[in-house]
Nucleic acid binder design. Sequence first.
DNA 1: ACAGTTACGTCAGCCATATTGACATATTTC
DNA 2: GAAATATGTCAATATGGCTGACGTAACTGT
Lengths: 182, 182
Amino acid sequence: MADVTVTAIATRPASPNAEPEHHSAEPTWDIIELLFFAYRDFVSDADEVLAKFGFGRAHHRVLHFVNRHPGMKVADLLDVLKITKQSLGRVLKQLVDQGYVQQKEGANDRRQRLLTVTPKGEQLAMKLAGLQTERIARALAELGPHAHEGARRFLIAMIDSSGRDGVQKLIARADRARRPRS
Amino acid sequence: MADVTVTAIATRPASPNAEPEHHSAEPTWDIIELLFFAYRDFVSDADEVLAKFGFGRAHHRVLHFVNRHPGMKVADLLDVLKITKQSLGRVLKQLVDQGYVQQKEGANDRRQRLLTVTPKGEQLAMKLAGLQTERIARALAELGPHAHEGARRFLIAMIDSSGRDGVQKLIARADRARRPRS
DNA sequence: ACAGTTACGTCAGCCATATTGACATATTTC
DNA sequence: GAAATATGTCAATATGGCTGACGTAACTGT
């Protein structure tokens, strides 16, 4: 139990003066590196399970968003994942062929393929989400009672300002959509 | 685009205390998704610059850690990145060949190749770190004065408990190395 | 009605980054 | 001197991105 506590790394004020700030400020090393390590461990939980199914992270992302946002259009998914339709096509086809995701024609627009998870797909999606939730819950439990709200606000602030509203709407909409259960 | 007019979705919930203890059946959807979006945007800053140099994220990670932890052994780098030496070898060779990273024999153990950045390498590493710092500083500035400490604690708590001490030591050691005073 | 646009799919190929396994070389250690 | 260690390398393979081109069905507007 080395007592190498993260000793006050003299955090600098964001803007001491209204100067053009020509890269004189010291980088925020700790957050940069912690983000790397935290995210690496965060995704690794699911990776192990996915490997047993012959899936990768790409499948996870698709399955996650389809499960969480049922009835999503393909275009929406492309927009959220920010990948090309060719890249999506490959993994989506596997998920559909193997019975994890279903496609059905849009009621208004029959060109659309609205995506939903099958029971089998939901089971896997929830298992993966459960693993990630375990880690998150464990982390938040170690911190104070306002940790969840604090983490949420930090993460939102890290998102491109241009995309923030969209993300928050997406999350809020999904929260309402999935409410009938529980 | 979904034209759902969801105006002002609880950006700052009036009373998050409405949930005393989480019924852990429901996944922590918001943090799961926000981590995805936040990390995606976080790494995208550097990607654009790297592309101009013909480098990718793998090069960035190597350059970052060598810059931040000068004199690192190859084995240390493998341990930090958790990739195979073959994977590292490819990108490291490019960085060395193009004059961003230097290797020198270890003083005690001449089998070791201690890695350091060249001035050219440092310049690029600092540019990339600067971009990431901009985003982080902007985010932290939006939140309260304790945001930095809060974010740090959250991220540390998200790391595998088995690796936490190592990561914190790594960061603390680097801070001392790059800042001889203290 | 027909032209144009949209939503989606697909073929073909390329690139970056990761993997496993085997083997080579120098150096240190016992 | 044998064994272990630190590093490098060759070869094959997988994943998940990308661009470009093309196709088809369905919606939209004049």
